[in-house]
Design a protein around this nucleic acid. Structure first.
Lengths: 219, 219
DNA sequence: CCTGCCATGGGGGGATCCCCTGAGCGGCCC
DNA sequence: GGGCCGCTCAGGGGATCCCCCCATGGCAGG
């Protein structure tokens, strides 16, 4: 940890590479640079850096899809390589794509050298790092994954245990007779339960019930 | 940024607080400590720290729900306060809960003082930081959010423009005649489109269609 | 003991869904 | 010009959905 961290900078602007190289502090050693995807792969293979600083808008992805770069680089290298994405953009689509391509962090180019150095250390340790404007987005998205499940409890416990069973099956698209077969009860009983569920949740059809359950991730 | 960052440590183990205070580097100034939720609120109000280092498993949440603490603290303070969660646990449920409570980062107690210092600086700048074991989890969850949206395009463009229109309305729970009124076409035409959609997507009912669209966040 | 809630079941009926067959019209491509 | 496809519309029919009425038995609370 006290040793310097070896990084490779991949960016198509040489001035930006120089600036980054100058601003990174003493604990980060730049062992290579590349301006495009093919040379990046070569440099990374040769130098085996701890972290790759990767510009999001690399040319070479082929046409308007200016961002196939990460995936290509990623797919051409051992998974042990760690990426930290640099971008002028804070668009949601860019963030998602880069993260899916395997980057462990995403910071904007407005960051100072000290901030970049800190982020480099963090991802070298395996941490995930996101710049301020992106952090909110990522956290919101993450929280949403399991989030609404919590608030649904309030309305959900107004249903009896049996009604909840029926509700889940109905919301998944089961027909009444399928629910009946699944729970070993009569179709008429299923109808009674569904009516109760719709009344208690103030819904008017099984379609709305599906949407309701879907929003709350009860499926 | 070159000034020291003022932090408050909230943890029910005094030895851990002392260790953390000793291990944090010179750029971080500990201006207060607390061992439980009520005193934490008081201390934070008085000292107005830049960052609050918060133990996840604080007692005082009331009974087995050992984690209501963050929400209580969070709800009692201005939203400008930034939280960094510390935990021995890397359970998914803990992470989700803490993030939803408003923490900007989550690191494990196995981290060194240097690592904690670095994380404190990061969240003070507005970054989001996650420890190695948690990073993978968070990134996976995040990627999943928008991941399926991308792959849905493949199946989605097999539908004609009109079919997609009808599909979206149907998936939202519109009745056939409502779709017909919305699109100024006959109910029979709607039926035809729905049949095509179901056939092309290999589904058998509008309920499954709702679930299909919901999973891909097309609503 | 009576009232309320829950789970179970039934009859009936109108609305809706889903599929079948069939058809006309306009555009695109070879 | 002749297929091929998409958009439009129609009739009919069986299955399903959702509501109305109703009843029985169990179980908890006032």
């Amino acid at each position: 940890m006290t040793e310097s961290i070896r990084v490779v900078i991949v960016d198509d602007h040489s001035i930006f590479r120089s600036g980054l190289r100058a601003d990174l502090d003493a604990t980060v050693e730049v062992v290579g640079e590349a301006a495009d995807v093919p040379s990046a792969i070569t440099v990374i293979r040769e130098t085996q850096p701890d972290v790759v600083l990767l510009d999001v808008h690399l040319p070479g992805g082929g046409g308007d899809d200016a961002a196939g770069g990460e995936a290509v680089i990623r797919g051409s290298l051992p998974t042990t390589t760690t990426f930290l994405a640099l971008s002028v953009s804070d668009a949601a689509a860019d963030v998602v794509r880069v993260i899916r391509a395997g980057a462990r962090g995403y910071i904007t180019k407005g960051s100072s050298g000290i901030e970049v150095s800190r982020a480099v250390h963090a991802v070298a340790d395996g941490d995930a790092v996101f710049s301020p404007r992106l952090a909110g987005f990522v956290l919101d998205a993450f929280g949403a994954v399991a989030g609404e499940t919590a608030t649904a409890t309030d309305e959900l416990d107004r249903l009896s245990a049996r009604e909840q069973e029926v509700m889940r099956l109905i919301a998944r698209g089961y027909a009444y007779k399928e629910v009946a077969a699944e729970l070993f009860i009569s179709i008429k009983t299923v109808e009674t339960h569904v009516s109760s569920v719709l009344r208690k949740l103030q819904l008017s059809s099984r379609h709305e019930l599906t949407a309701w359950a879907s929003e709350r991730r009860l499926l």
